[in-house]
């Protein structure tokens, strides 16, 4: 439901002033062989240096040669576009409790980040992973660069449904198997899975030299434990496991404690790895999260 806001003009206008907090590509020496191939060239001159054997003669400064009779090579600042992948958890836990609309919040934030990223014409795509029949299923949108094409994400976003028991590490492995150039990955999830699984996923992404940002999404009722009191059978949305429970104030407090503990574990795991991390708790706080929490936590600048 909430994801529909992502394509409303009023919401997009609020995002126009934001810039993705991304570390740009490093300068490389143009005209020099690097690992057997030229990595790329820019148009902004950086410096000059003496010609050395093996340098590409196309970068020889012919004016300097004519005037000074000296072989000089021009160097440029190479500019590289950054591929941005917004990886969204679409497992069944993202859909529960239904009232929290965690998945809608995740899609809204993901779309907002994509819009922000497209301000610098970086190629952006959305990727969602879920579980189906015991296997991890990863669906991808196409890359879009310009904001004029932002609305092309709408069909993809509308088609996403959460379900199944997802394994984040397996989804990341599937993503890395594409062998795309290193870029930025924004991971949006409730991280309600085993610590081993999400830590493996984070480690793999970092090992692939991606710049990683994490958005930890939780629902308001989930965090507060504010379920209506009474006797219930609760069922794990992903595993189907059923437990009988009586919900009351004490159980709500226990839930809060457990949610806080879980959030702290995720945050600690990100901090240990130097990963930008933000918490997005409560769908009703979407605007505040985007405008205040994201810049503060370095997701956007």
């Amino acid at each position: 439901m909430l994801e529909k806001r992502a394509f409303e003009p009023e919401f997009l206008q609020k995002l126009d002033s934001l810039v993705l907090g991304v570390t740009r590509a490093r300068t490389i020496r143009a005209g020099r062989r690097a690992g057997g191939r030229v990595l790329g060239t820019g148009i902004e001159p950086e410096s000059f240096r003496d010609y050395a054997e093996g340098d590409d003669l196309r970068y020889l400064d012919w004016n300097a040669l004519a005037r000074l009779d000296d072989l000089t090579i021009r160097t440029f600042r190479a500019e590289r576009q950054l591929e941005i992948t917004i990886l969204i958890d679409a497992s069944a836990s993202m859909g529960a409790p239904r009232e929290d609309d965690k998945f809608g919040l995740a899609l809204l934030l993901g779309a907002a980040l994509a819009y922000v990223a497209m301000s610098e014409n970086d190629p952006v795509r959305l990727v969602a992973f879920s579980g189906a029949k015991g296997a991890t299923q990863v669906v991808r949108s196409g890359f879009h660069r310009r904001r004029e094409t932002f609305l092309e994400f709408r069909p993809f976003v509308a088609s996403l449904r959460c379900g199944g028991e997802a394994q984040m590490a397996a989804a990341v492995a599937d993503l890395l198997a594409e062998r795309r150039p290193k870029g930025m990955v924004v991971l949006i999830s409730d991280f309600l899975l085993t610590e081993t699984d999400y830590e493996t996923a984070l480690t793999r992404l970092l090992a692939a030299r991606h710049e990683l940002k994490v958005l930890h999404v939780m629902g308001e009722r989930e965090v507060a434990g504010s379920y209506p009191p009474g006797a219930y059978r609760i069922r794990d949305a992903e595993t189907g496991e059923i437990r009988e429970i009586t919900l009351n104030a004490a159980s709500a407090a226990a839930c809060r404690t457990r949610a806080a503990t879980h959030a702290e574990r995720v945050r600690a795991a990100c901090l240990r790895r130097g990963i930008s991390h933000a918490q997005a708790f409560g769908a009703g706080n979407a605007d505040a999260i985007i405008m205040r929490e994201f810049p503060r936590l370095g997701v956007i600048s």
Partner: peptide, 10 residues
């Protein structure tokens, strides 16, 4: 029956 995201929160 109440469906929750994870039983680990209870």
């Amino acid at each position: 029956l109440l469906e929750v995201s994870s039983l680990t929160l209870f």
